[in-house]
Design a binder for these strands. Structure first.
Lengths: 142, 142
DNA sequence: TCAGGTACCGAATAATTTTTCGGTATGGAT
DNA sequence: ATCCATACCGAAAAATTATTCGGTACCTGA
């Protein structure tokens, strides 16, 4: 028996293609803090308060929101205690566990390339845009 | 000798952490259409016009922008022809090639889970939010 | 009864990314 | 001189995501 209300989710204007595997993956764990949260949980942080303490680069609210989305998509499961103080534990489902190796690959790739990327990023020009065609770009083909 | 101007890139207000491998990876190939473009190129599409024809779900402008970012970050290399008609070819650099297995993993994961995700996504409530605590959520712990 | 720790939530706002629109430039063919 | 296909680009608008702010609720011990 419970009163409840369902908040309607943000309604996209542009449809996404959930037949594309990459879109699906990105939807489920591609948000800014989700990999971070999944990682922390895989390393043993289970309670929201622990996560809040561990991840200080964003607010508690943000973590809470992402946690609940991860539960919705079946990446995490949630157990609620009734004792005192309130206690909730999140843990990875098998589906969640299956994400870990992918995150490991992403992380390895990023670490391997981070110096180059950093250098380019700090150059301040994302794209060599605005250049008006003139000198030879590289070798000539075609 | 060439006239040119550099368009300044979007200046972030919130700093990103480029020591985190996952952030780096996401920055380089995590944008909406980049995986798609990388994939198309890996399958043999080299010229912008081919890509435009192959990827019809977004505009040419979008593809062009992503292409130039991918070049900037060293994922693609660009060769410009001087003949007629104008001809440009993009190809994967070794760094670009090294992304392919990761995309394959992401894609495989997504395809394996897409039915579940689709079902949940179309349920219309992203998060089971708004629920006011009352019945037992799951088993009790703590 | 009140403070204190835990777990949440909604609505507004800000930041970021994506998309649209309307251009420029090149060189050959007509 | 105009038209075509190719390859680009800037600026504004729209869409999406992330963040901030100010709450509620539960239980217990002081």
């Amino acid at each position: 028996m419970g009163t409840f209300t369902l908040k309607k989710m943000y309604e996209r204007k542009i449809q996404e293609d959930l037949d594309c595997g990459i879109s699906v993956a990105m939807k489920v764990f591609g948000a800014k803090w989700k990999p971070c949260i999944i990682d922390a949980i895989s390393r043993g942080a289970r309670r929201p308060s622990e996560l809040h303490r561990e991840i200080t680069t964003t607010s508690a609210r943000v973590i809470d929101m992402q946690l609940s989305e991860l539960v919705t998509y079946g990446v995490l499961s949630k157990k609620t205690g009734t004792g005192f103080p309130l206690c909730v534990e999140y843990s990875l489902t098998p589906m969640g566990e299956s994400i870990l190796p992918i995150l490991a690959h992403l992380s390895a790739w990023g670490l391997k390339n981070k110096e180059v990327v950093k250098k380019i990023a700090q150059n301040g020009q994302e794209a060599p845009a605005g250049k008006k065609r003139s000198w030879n770009e590289l070798s000539t083909i075609c």
